[in-house]
Amino acid sequence: MSEAVCLLLYSFAVVVLAPRPLTRLTHRGVVPQLELVAWLSAIGSVVASWLAVPVIVIAYVITDLAHPGRPVLDSCYAQLHDAATGHYGILVQSGFLALTGFATCAGVVLLGRVGRWFLLARSTTHEHARMVRIAGRHDAGLDAIVLDVAETAAYSVAGKPPTVVVTRGAIAALDHGQLSAVLEHERAHLAGRHHLWLALTRGLAANLSRIELFTLGATEVARLLEMCADDAAARVHGRPAVLRALLTLSGIPEAVSPVLGMNGVDLPARVERLIPPIEPRPGVQARLLLGAVVAVVIIGPLASATLAAIGIAVCAPLPG
């Protein structure tokens, strides 16, 4: 039972302590792929810890019931067992059972809400892709759906099949190299299944809106996914083409400094990182630091459970 307590303590520490340092560490987008892994690892380790706790408790209960002649397997479980059976009085028993029922219901409701959010997002995305294919025309040369509208826009929609959408206005505004960079950016989203990560993180943020790890995490994951797609396009078509395309689609003159107040979510950061730096970016240092963060958040739950399992118990037996 100590393993469950250790996992809860670990997840509480990550939820409270991780969001702000992670935000400061990843805000520049120096290595967006690794920064994305750091956020997803932190979020995933907390969710995995929460899911593991009831499994551990159930396993202890089943093991104890299967061996009724043996002493209770763990002192923590012994205390919980006594509380549930009324050994400490009816008040403690009622409170314990109410808390257990509330926690179980909360977990089931949370899983249901996140699952429903994900299914709704998936259904909406697939329906949008279907409607776009009906409204637009497929351009074999671009391998994309072209919408006959004057607005400059390009985006990708996960569906069956996944679809890249570009407007007539964007095609007219971009030169060949810029248009190719935009299409490569959108294909990188589809190839990396970025829509899946967005749906999962936004689902958690919507249903756990008071937990900063999930709300900040959803925002940072969306920003880093855009930077990953920018880098994928830049590797093929070069940073200048991606930068000019981004500015053109945003309706911003190239002469405008990216540090001025520009509209668009995270657009200044994306533009700034595409401009060649005066000094080399601290890539190696950032990679080492982010690698250490990823290692900690991945190893943390395993280390917590292992230490508890080999005898470093959080709960001690009651005296007497």
Rank of each mutant, 00 (worst) to 15 (best):
S2V: 10
R20Y: 11
G29N: 04
G29A: 03
L34M: 11
L34S: 09
G44N: 05
S49V: 10
L51E: 03
L65V: 03
P68C: 06
G69C: 06
D74P: 00
H81R: 12
H81Q: 12
G89I: 10
V92E: 10
T104K: 01
G107I: 09
V109M: 09
S123H: 14
T125G: 14
H126V: 14
H128P: 00
D143P: 03
V146I: 15
E151G: 05
G159Y: 12
P162F: 04
V164D: 04
A170R: 02
I171Q: 03
Q178A: 11
L179R: 11
L179M: 10
H189D: 14
H189I: 09
A191L: 08
R193L: 08
L200K: 00
G203L: 06
R210L: 13
I211E: 10
E212C: 04
F214V: 06
G217D: 02
E226C: 04
M227W: 04
A229M: 09
H237Y: 15
A241C: 06
A245P: 02
T248K: 08
G251H: 04
G251W: 02
E254N: 09
V256P: 02
D266W: 14
P268H: 10
L274M: 11
P276N: 10
E279T: 09
R287W: 13
V294P: 13
V296E: 04
L302S: 12
L307V: 10
I310Y: 08
P317R: 13
